[in-house]
Design a protein around this nucleic acid. Structure first.
Length: 272
DNA sequence: ACCCAGGGTAACT
DNA sequence: AGTTACCATGGG
């Protein structure tokens, strides 16, 4: 039985959360309506005043999306730890931004594809990967499973047009399927041990590993340093982040990412 | 035509 | 341990 489920929640802006460069599988349908796919599940979701409405959703899928949007976490309590001037300003502007709890393999592959690439093109790569190798759903395509992509060749991925990233994608899938990398075991590992595991994959370095740990495993101390975050650190935190921020550095990172990217004085920023 | 993009690797000092 | 050219591709 499909039905609309309204869930009240504070501090959740779908617009900010879904288009903040952590997921590449969401579309904006109109002012308040969004459509996206996670794994093999599709969702239409509407922004409400004080919450969201899951539209025409199977009752058994509600816990999945509750977990995906991390609705059990009190974001106000976390954001209250951010008391320095810069972070307070980022929260003022980008309040409602959250970290999604995405699927590990999906996150691993999309962030391998993200390297030395821009967000618009990453969306294109991910969508072509799903269209080529993912199962068709009602309104789009599922993210292909590791077994589905296992033993595919570079030519099989040609339609994706991922360039030099294709061989990394292949290596990641091989290692996950053959258990050279125990991807799903990372859930029960510490941040450091999980990172060590991910770094076994070719094409996965510090930054991509941190993205996977943060967006795919919800390790909130992970702090991915892309070119934008490096600019923000150089500019606002030459001496590092405040102590109280460290345990939730990943969330601070996401706010800083949005903030520095929307900064109008781009010309004055170092390029790294 | 040129520069850059939610970087990583290999080959250098 | 810290730099640097190179990697495919396409948008601005």
């Amino acid at each position: 039985m499909k039905q609309d489920i309204y869930i009240p929640v504070r501090c959740l802006s779908l617009e900010k959360t879904l288009f903040s460069g952590q997921s590449f599988r969401w579309e904006k349908k109109d002012e308040h309506l969004f459509f996206g796919i996670s794994g093999r599940k599709e969702l239409f979701v509407r922004q409400e005043e004080n919450g969201i409405t899951l539209l025409s959703v199977d009752e058994e899928d509600v816990p999945y999306w509750y977990h995906y949007f991390d609705l059990g976490t009190d974001y106000d309590a976390i954001l209250n730890r951010f008391q320095d001037e810069t972070l307070k300003k980022t929260i003022q502007i980008h309040y409602g931004l959250r970290i999604l709890r995405q699927q590990p393999y999906e996150t691993l592959i999309t962030f391998i594809l993200s390297q030395n690439n821009n967000m618009k093109r990453i969306r294109g790569l991910v969508s072509r990967l799903c269209e080529t190798w993912g199962e068709p759903l009602s309104n789009g395509y599922a993210f292909p499973s590791p077994l589905k992509l296992y033993q595919l060749t570079e030519e099989d991925f040609a339609p994706v047009r991922a360039g030099f990233r294709t061989k990394y994608l292949i290596d990641a899938t091989n290692k996950v399927v053959l258990r050279d990398v125990d991807l799903y075991g990372i859930s029960s590992l510490s941040y450091e041990e999980g990172k060590k595991e991910l770094l076994k994959i070719r094409g996965v370095g510090e930054k991509v590993a941190d993205c996977v740990l943060l967006f795919g495993f919800y390790k909130m101390e992970a702090f991915p340093k892309d070119v934008w975050i490096k600019r923000a650190l150089a500019r606002y935190y030459p001496n590092g982040l405040p102590k109280s921020v460290i345990p939730y550095a990943g969330i601070a990172q996401q706010y800083l990412f949005e903030y520095i990217r929307s900064c109008e004085e781009k010309e004055s920023l170092p390029t790294f």
